[in-house]
Write a protein that binds this DNA or RNA. Structure first.
Length: 623
DNA sequence: ATAGGGTTAG
């Protein structure tokens, strides 16, 4: 009996669609026991089927794994190829199939029956270990690699380093890495990517600097790492450096740098990457488009986000969710919900993030009833178990709407432990709706859950200040000092001609400070004619009103807007980024500025967008 | 034969 070698490459393929639903054919390709094999065998004899219809390697694998090892060997005698090579092919299909454990079992049987593993054998078993995160067997295979004298095979050592790192054994990975007589780019890249994944961006950067040569993947890992850990500036700088070095970004690089652009609101670079992607063809890539949607939405350009979404030939749940989350952040609740309906109608299944967007939209527009409905529907209709984020949205929804008691009860009845964000949402509602008692309750939990977050102390002291309880304000201040908590200084930034200009309150460091304040004075006169009245109650210091006005007029977002008016031509949209939330006075001022300057002003707040146009804001003053 | 990618509440 001779069989054609092409048979060797018939994979087990449990998924293979059989044109004729013949149960025997099906069994032949999917059997997993010698008993089933006998049935097949009997059938083949009866029908006199050609031998070429038999997937020999699968037969051998199943036999070997089911204590008919010698039978398996017999099969291999029929084939004109070396025995190890045949076993290696079996191992590979097992390692890459949906039962990698079998590859490991087969490996041990090979040893039992004196089949000597070679470098390929080891590579496939290591692959199986990686897929299973099985470091125990990995260690054993590592031992064999050394015993077989393969300890200088870079392929294998790379896989071993990768395996240890994947399984969280960074120390061992590092030791193997350090001991390697030679390393290639991949060795370094494996270490860098794994360090980044474990959040050790500094460790990764050290290796990145140290490595003798870097390829696109090395750069991409670092850029992605910085983008992910909230250091978008570093990510962008590295990206520019990479371009300088003459390397061409790939799709993954583009995604990574776009995430950074989104985070820091760097629209200029984001647009440039978009152009580049269109030129080079990356715009056909779904992930690139999803990230572009998010980038544009986070940079305040919903129209552009929508254009990307619209032009996509294929969309995933992420594309839809990115749009919904973006619309929610812009306060366009109705549109967000309309999007959700369209999404459902196209048969797309929403996920947990989709609902974060939906609930976010409801809470920002105060549509409590709908929020409740969606929260219930999420589990009932889509089987999604609410996560802490969803509970946070609900507490925010109730709190903003003034349903503070309900919010409190909701927290007490949560099936999972509330975190700082959840109590923080209640605290925020307490400030808007002036409820000192519940604010104090929230604060009690917050000083346990998130004692170093300055924001909560600030809100509480603001609540006291508004009520004129200055001795309590002083007490909170003391508490902050005792705990070493410092108030984050507010800043606003604006990008002009590719340069970021940053302003803090009362800023006098900007080279054009004088011009800015002069322009502000002139602007202020026109604003007052339009009905602007400074709202000094937002200045929570115990002082005279004219003093307060001085503080008020030097808020960073006002300075940034004035600078934008000076530096950009008529009709240009002014885009501001802010690290905290917009104060009530600035909010009122920006509405009026949008009228007297006939400009659109988009402010990205700590957690949403305000789009000021013709005297009103997209948030509908509910924020 | 060996290395990666997006959306997330305040």
């Amino acid at each position: 009996m001779i069989c054609s070698v092409s048979l060797l490459h018939v994979p087990p393929l449990p998924h293979r669609a059989s044109p004729t639903p013949n149960p025997i054919t099906h069994l032949l390709h999917n059997f997993s026991s010698p008993f089933e094999l006998k049935q097949v065998h009997a059938h083949l004899l009866k029908t006199n089927s050609p031998l070429s219809s038999i997937p020999l390697l699968r037969v051998a694998s199943v036999c070997a794994l089911n204590s008919s090892f010698s039978y398996a060997k017999l099969i291999f005698e029929l084939v004109d190829a070396s025995e190890v090579a045949l076993w290696n092919t079996c191992l590979r299909s097992l390692a890459e199939g949906d039962s990698p454990v079998d590859a490991i079992s087969l490996f041990y049987r090979l040893r039992e029956f004196d089949v000597c593993p070679d470098n390929y054998t080891c590579s496939f078993v290591l692959k199986a270990c990686s897929r299973l995160l099985d470091v125990r067997n990995g260690r054993i295979v590592h031992g064999y690699v050394e015993k077989l004298g393969l300890q200088s095979n870079m392929f294998l050592l790379n896989m071993i380093v990768h395996l240890y790192a994947l399984c969280g054994e960074m120390g061992v990975a590092r030791m193997v890495f350090d001991k390697m007589p030679q390393r290639d780019v991949i060795t370094w890249n494996i270490m860098i990517a794994q360090l980044v994944k474990r959040g050790d961006i500094e460790g990764a950067y050290k290796l990145f600097v140290e490595m003798p040569e870097r390829n696109v993947r090395s750069w991409t890992s670092m850029i992605g790492g910085y983008a992910q850990c909230g250091k978008p500036k570093e990510a962008v700088d590295l990206f520019l450096e990479m371009e300088e070095a003459g390397l061409l970004p790939n799709e993954v690089t583009v995604v990574a740098v776009l995430v950074a652009c989104a985070d820091m609101g760097n629209l200029d670079l984001g647009r440039r990457i978009h152009d580049f992607s269109n030129r080079i063809g990356y715009h056909k890539n779904i992930r690139v488009c999803n990230t572009l949607i998010d980038m544009y939405a986070k940079c305040g350009c919903l129209d552009d986000a929508y254009r990307i979404f619209n032009d996509m030939e294929e969309r995933t749940v992420v594309s839809w969710s990115a749009m919904i989350v973006g619309l929610a952040a812009h306060g366009q609740a109705e549109e967000a919900l309309a999007f959700f309906n369209k999404m459902i109608n196209t048969g797309m299944k929403p996920n947990a993030v989709t609902f974060i967007g939906i609930l976010h939209a409801c809470s920002h527009m105060g549509i409590v009833g709908k929020g409740r409905k969606y929260f219930a529907s999420m589990t009932k209709d889509y089987g999604i178990i609410p996560r802490i984020e969803h509970y946070g949205c609900m507490v925010d929804l109730f709190s903003r709407a003034g349903l503070l008691q309900e919010a409190h009860e909701f927290i007490m009845n949560m099936p999972i432990a509330p975190n700082g964000v959840v109590w923080g949402a209640l605290l925020g509602g307490c400030k808007v709706h002036k409820n000192i008692k519940l604010a104090e309750e929230a604060t009690r939990h917050l000083s346990e859950l998130d004692p170093l977050n300055d924001g909560y102390y600030v809100v509480l002291s603001n609540i006291y200040a508004e009520a004129g309880r200055w001795e309590d304000v002083a007490r909170v201040r003391r508490l902050m000092r005792d705990r070493g908590v410092k108030k984050t200084p507010g800043w606003s930034s604006i990008m002009v001609e590719g340069m970021v200009h940053n302003f803090v309150a009362g800023d006098e460091t900007h080279p054009q400070t004088e011009e800015i304040y002069k322009t502000w004075e002139k602007l202020l006169e026109r604003m007052k004619l339009e009905g602007y009245v400074p709202n000094t109650s937002v200045v929570l210091l115990d002082m005279e009103d004219d003093q307060k006005e001085k503080f008020l007029f030097r808020h960073s977002e006002k300075l940034a807007v004035v600078f934008g008016l000076i530096k950009t031509g008529p009709g240009t949209v002014i885009r501001i980024m802010k690290n905290l939330r917009v104060c009530e006075d600035c909010h009122a001022a920006l509405k009026i500025i949008s009228v007297v300057s006939t400009r659109e002003i988009v402010v990205r707040d700590r957690n949403r967008f305000h789009c000021f146009k013709n005297g009103s804001c997209s948030c509908g003053d509910y924020w």
